[in-house]
């Protein structure tokens, strides 16, 4: 098992009106067997980060710099054929957003799993089929349903089949992009449990992209909060979610109702996420931040450890010891 190291990764979409800076200088390290949650509002670049790692960019998406290394091997400059054969699905697999549509409606579920195995390993069709059936069983689907089509599966089953598919080649890292978004709460819990169990059993690393803090809190060891293409806060889940320091993270946690607390009103962060064509100067959150001062508008804060070990924050208003004013959004 190897470490995934992302450094200063930048991926911009080229558009007629300029560059959309969807991923703008993202760095993190994912230790083997750990789970990292990436949270943020819609359009903050979290899904773009996922497809950048797998090099599945649309024609207008371009990597502008940085590096992605898995077990010391640079992935961004690897030639396409080698990357396809040796990295995609073999080391880096993905569970896509809205797995409802991640299965081809005109092919059987089983064959879509077997096909992933056949693409990477020299095995017979029978062997691939047998393994696909084992994988289905592993996520709690009757292997007899190998030959069934996606429309014959329920939403939760489809999502679990997609997870089984991601495990087909024993990858080292799984990137799950909103794996439970379209599911109801009960099924969501089942799927999350399946992910956690498998991760522990197989020693996988996981990158879980979600807008749902509770999902991340349940599943991950670490969490990175993204805002406007950048990570603004990163650290162990209990640290970041219990003692959020960045004003944006504070806002996010306040936007979630606490089931045990009194009926406090749910607060939202006023304003809208910035246009990534021309992001604000300095700290990208400053136009929406109640603590912002003149420094925030001028100078971009660095993502550095503040207060606790491995708890990184990019905010001028957080002191070196991690002290920050409590932010109340109206």
């Amino acid at each position: 098992m190897s470490e995934l190291v992302v450094q200063d990764l930048r991926m911009y979409y080229q558009s007629r009106r300029g560059q959309v800076r969807a991923v703008d200088g993202v760095s993190f390290t994912l230790a083997p067997g750990k789970a990292l949650g990436i949270v943020g509002e819609s359009g903050c670049g979290k899904s773009s980060l996922g497809i950048t790692l797998l090099r599945l960019l649309p024609p207008n998406g371009r990597v502008m710099g940085g590096s992605v290394r898995l077990g010391g091997e640079e992935l961004l400059t690897m030639d396409e054929e080698t990357f396809r054969k040796n990295i995609r699905w073999k080391k880096l697999a993905m569970v896509f957003q809205g797995a409802m549509n991640a299965l081809n409606p005109v092919l059987t579920v089983g064959s879509q799993i077997a096909e992933a195995i056949l693409a990477h390993e020299r095995v017979t069709k029978e062997e691939a089929e047998r393994r696909a059936k084992d994988l289905l069983a592993m996520v709690g689907i009757n292997p007899a349903r190998y030959g069934h089509y996606p429309h014959e599966f329920s939403g939760g089953m489809k999502q679990r089949a997609v997870i089984a598919m991601a495990l087909a080649c024993n990858p080292q890292v799984i990137i799950a992009d909103e794996p439970t978004t379209a599911l109801d709460v009960m099924v969501q819990a089942q799927v999350l449990k399946a992910i956690s169990d498998l991760r522990q059993r197989l020693g996988l690393s996981l990158i879980l992209v979600s807008h749902d803090l509770s999902v991340v809190a349940q599943t991950c060891d670490e969490v990175a909060v993204m805002y406007a293409g950048k990570i603004v806060e990163h650290g162990p889940v209990e640290e970041v979610l219990v003692r959020p320091r960045h004003p944006y993270t504070q806002g996010l946690t306040q936007a979630f109702p606490d089931i045990r607390a009194d009926r406090a009103p749910i607060v939202s962060i006023p304003g809208t996420p910035p246009n990534l064509l021309s992001p604000p100067s300095g700290c990208r959150f400053h136009p929406r931040c109640p603590l912002a001062d003149e420094l925030c508008a001028r100078e971009e804060p660095e993502l550095v450890e503040k207060g606790a070990a491995r708890h990184r924050v990019a905010c001028h208003q957080v002191s070196v010891s991690g002290e920050v004013a409590e932010v109340r959004f109206a």
């Binding site: 054969k85 896509f96 096909e115 992933a116 693409a119």
Partner: peptide, 25 residues
């Protein structure tokens, strides 16, 4: 479609993605 992105992510070749997934559907 998402299933074509998935097919590409699986490391299938361009041909396989185009014919087995996109065209087949």
């Amino acid at each position: 479609q998402d299933y074509v992105l998935t097919a590409r992510a699986k490391g299938l070749t361009q041909r396989e993605v185009l014919y087995r997934h996109a065209f087949r559907s």
